[in-house]
């Protein structure tokens, strides 16, 4: 379910962004098995700290296509109240911390949260997702060292998709990738074919077992390929060859899963076609609904900066209300004025 749903979502959301219906999108093509395979091996009480290309995890946890669409349109149903760019999903109910664009900052958070779980006696772990590019940030090293030294049950899940925007992994690091770093921090680590959902699942299940039982971190490096552009702002033909892309796309993780299931006699072309079509229809509908919804109201510009609304923000809010009264044309389209 998550595979065709995710693929349909990526395809339709991507096209919608290209048509200018919303401002930005990132696909996860080529890495679906990493997101879904790890998610399937985690428990709902495990807490997720993601980078931005892991919507398969959310999908697996039950975030609906409608919720994804609401967020991309920044409408009133979106928990982030339209304040962040598209794809910055988050869900308190699904233990998925809201995405933040600065790279690797979530990694120390995941360590602190894992330590908290341990102290609170919860038999769970945190899972921190990041790219091989983000692993160059200081926060990665701080997080790995803290997790190991302080004994935090966290899974560091690196999606090594070969690129950080235009920069190939070969210019990101020398040495044996990210998995090799685990040992130097005194941490169990493993490398897995990120295009093989079953392998990813098996590795994650075992890593989770080690982390939760041992109160320690485990590093997983899932090797794959970013089949799409970095984002809708990128054109990857500027820095990689069509031939390279073709070769990797031939190893598409979703098709590999589909083939395996077909081989087992659990799935066939017909079912696949049907599911793809129905997924696509659901996604299109979700977008249509989301696009029609109002934006959050004007008052949400100033709330949530702090737990309360301090005097200076009350003043600024009044200033904006007054400005909009005098210049109603400046109120963004679809935004109710509740001030």
């Amino acid at each position: 379910m998550d595979f065709p749903g995710g693929k349909a979502m990526d395809a339709v959301f991507y096209d919608s962004q290209r048509q200018g219906r919303f401002s930005f999108y990132m696909t996860s093509g080529g890495e679906e098995a990493t997101a879904v395979g790890t998610a399937a091996a985690l428990q709902p009480e495990d807490v997720i700290f993601s980078q931005y290309r892991e919507h398969g995890v959310l999908l697996h946890r039950g975030f609906t296509l409608q919720e994804f669409a609401h967020q991309c349109f920044g409408n009133k149903h979106e928990p982030g109240k339209g304040r962040q760019m598209p794809i910055h999903y988050g869900s308190k109910a699904l233990n998925f911390h809201t995405v933040s664009a600065p790279l690797a900052t979530q990694l120390p958070h995941a360590v602190g949260a894992a330590y908290a779980l341990k102290l609170q006696g919860v038999k769970a772990c945190t899972a921190a997702y990041f790219g091989e590019g983000a692993a160059s940030e200081g926060d990665f090293h701080a997080a790995a060292n803290f997790a190991s030294t302080l004994g935090a049950p966290v899974l560091f899940i690196c999606r090594n998709n070969g690129y950080a925007i235009s920069t190939p992994a070969t210019e990101q690091y020398k040495g044996d990738g990210i998995a090799g770093r685990g040992a130097s921090y005194g941490m169990a680590s493993t490398r897995v074919d990120g295009g093989d959902a079953r392998a990813v699942y098996a590795a994650t299940a075992e890593a989770r077992q080690i982390a939760v039982a041992g109160g320690c971190p485990v590093l997983i490096e899932a090797m794959s390929y970013r089949s799409g552009h970095h984002s809708t702002s990128d054109d990857s033909s500027r820095y990689r060859t069509a031939d390279e892309m073709r070769r990797w796309r031939a190893r598409d993780p979703v098709e590999r899963m589909q083939k395996w299931m077909t081989h087992q006699g659990w799935w066939d072309e017909e079912q696949e076609k049907e599911l793809r079509q129905s997924s696509r229809k659901q996604v299109v509908e979700a977008l249509q609904i989301a696009q029609k919804e109002d934006k959050p109201p004007l008052s949400c510009m100033f709330t949530d900066v702090y737990a309360d609304l301090p005097w200076h923000l009350k003043e600024q809010q009044a200033e904006v209300a007054d400005f909009v009264r005098r210049h109603p044309e400046m109120l963004p389209a679809g935004m109710p004025n509740d001030l």
Binding site: G74, G82, R83, M85, P296, M301, F302, V305, L313, P332
Partner: peptide, 13 residues
């Protein structure tokens, strides 16, 4: 204003 930069409120911010 004294808020994080807010996407949908940018024209007013």
């Amino acid at each position: 204003y004294d808020t994080p930069f807010p996407l949908i409120y940018e024209p007013l911010y």
